[in-house]
Design a protein around this nucleic acid. Sequence first.
RNA 1: UCAGGUGGCUGGGCGGCCGCGGUGUCAGGCUUGAAAAGGCGGCACCGAGGAAAGUCCGGGCUCCACGGAGACAAGGUGCCGGGUAAUUCCCGGCGGGGGUGACCCCAGGGAAAGCGCAGCAGAGAAAGACCGCCGGACGUGCGCGUCCGGUAAGGGUGAAACGGUGCGGUAAGAGCGCACCGCCCCGACCGCAAGGAAGGGGGCUAGGCAAGCCCCACCUGGAGCAAGACCGAAUAGGGAUGGGCCGUGGCUUUUGCCACACAUGCGUCUCCGCAUGCCAUCCGGGUAGGUCGCACCAGGCAUGUCGCAAGGCAUGUCGCAGAUGAAUGGUCGUCGCGCUUGUUCCGUUCCGGAACAAGCGACACAGAACCCGGCUUAUAGGCCACCUGAUCCC
RNA 2: CGGAGUAUAGCUCAGCCUGGUAGAGCACCGUCUUCGGGAGGCGGGGGUCGCAAGUUCAAAUCUUGCUACUCCGA
Length: 125
Amino acid sequence: MDTTPPAIDRLKKRREFLYCAQGKKAVRSGVVVQARQRDGALRLGAGFTATKKVGNSVVRSRVKRRLREAARLLLPLHGRPGFDYVFIARATTADRAWPHLLQDVESALVSLASDEAPGNAKQRA
RNA sequence: UCAGGUGGCUGGGCGGCCGCGGUGUCAGGCUUGAAAAGGCGGCACCGAGGAAAGUCCGGGCUCCACGGAGACAAGGUGCCGGGUAAUUCCCGGCGGGGGUGACCCCAGGGAAAGCGCAGCAGAGAAAGACCGCCGGACGUGCGCGUCCGGUAAGGGUGAAACGGUGCGGUAAGAGCGCACCGCCCCGACCGCAAGGAAGGGGGCUAGGCAAGCCCCACCUGGAGCAAGACCGAAUAGGGAUGGGCCGUGGCUUUUGCCACACAUGCGUCUCCGCAUGCCAUCCGGGUAGGUCGCACCAGGCAUGUCGCAAGGCAUGUCGCAGAUGAAUGGUCGUCGCGCUUGUUCCGUUCCGGAACAAGCGACACAGAACCCGGCUUAUAGGCCACCUGAUCCC
RNA sequence: CGGAGUAUAGCUCAGCCUGGUAGAGCACCGUCUUCGGGAGGCGGGGGUCGCAAGUUCAAAUCUUGCUACUCCGA
């Protein structure tokens, strides 16, 4: 297993987020993760978002930084190449203990990967 | 010691592990490429705030408008002097108000230019007479009543009633007279000015609201970095040139339009329906996107000097964030700090203080987005200087 | 980021400019009508006028500062 991990692209455009919102969703107590397969390429996509309900700008920035760090650690291990992932912060993300937040992200990624495996869920309505 | 006032400072420290953005640099390394250049990478150095916030003012900067000057409208400002690029900001004064005091607060021009407003209550709300008081005449049933006149001291209402208190005076009263206070006018003299003010005069005339209209004086072109400049994919329009097609009929100067035919595509085929009407090259506008604007200045610090101060000047020195789904961090340890709880000790009780232990703590408020100067608002804890009041001791 | 606007009863809105009594419709409660309900008639309750200062005798209204929400601009 010495293959270099696939490069991670940041999702920046509004339509990229809306595209992912049409895909599969995994809800954990510290985070919501959306994923959807994209045309072509073995690249991973990752986007982060936090609404005003999460808190003021200090809290929103901190929450996105924590999710970004969690994704940097876990996405190369559990993410499926060719998929875009959107991490949505919840009101609990800021106070969630760091090991628990990692567990949430890992569990969500594993769940999404098994659902989207090519064997059993190729055709989705 | 306690209680306060004013001004200013600070806004967790150190260390592991793993990351992010920028700038500079690297005949070197990997990679795309013909090259230029770009990407990955190595090294070095930087990398949030006093409010970065609210967007309330003032400027710079950019575009638009504009021949000059003035007037009007609209909006703003409003004691005086100074500071500044400029301000509604700041400093120093003046006046008024509050506080025992240090000190604090004030949109603080004009109400004898005009209009307007003042509910309810009250006789009366800008100039008035209800109850009263007094005099005279008449009638008396001797209690008083009616009429005429004088008065504004007393009553009551109100936020506010046209000087206050005392003495004299009077039929009763009244600045009617006098003393003191208040008010108005003049005002030597002081001050650059706002203003202060010795003194003199006036018997009092001229109530409030201008953060109501208004008057006076002064100021103001509009929009905002999503400003603005440049580069520019795919697709669909536009224009030019060249070639091809240029069927029939009608309208039409032409361009062109309509119908039929033809070709292509779609609805599985026919019928039928719908849509489209050749190709190449070049030009221009322009969307997504990108680049610039974009960080070296009304700059910070130190010293000297002028000024009561705000601040000015001179010299030296420093280089101090530039992101764009948006970097400046994530996590762990330790120290410090705070809060809560418990134990022990001090303390006459309450209040409180000290030590130890445990738990909790994005360790307060809060994240640059073109840049500065102000204002306003949020802010745990800590520190410094000066001053005031009370108490105790000498 | 920049620029505008709104906040009044449970809901939708007047009143604000020109300051003194806070009002309408729907909803709610009581009652009449009906065998009962609805509709209708009559009567009634309910409002820190977003918050805080200031001006004024007096503020929903005027002024200033905050808070929340809405809209517009490539």
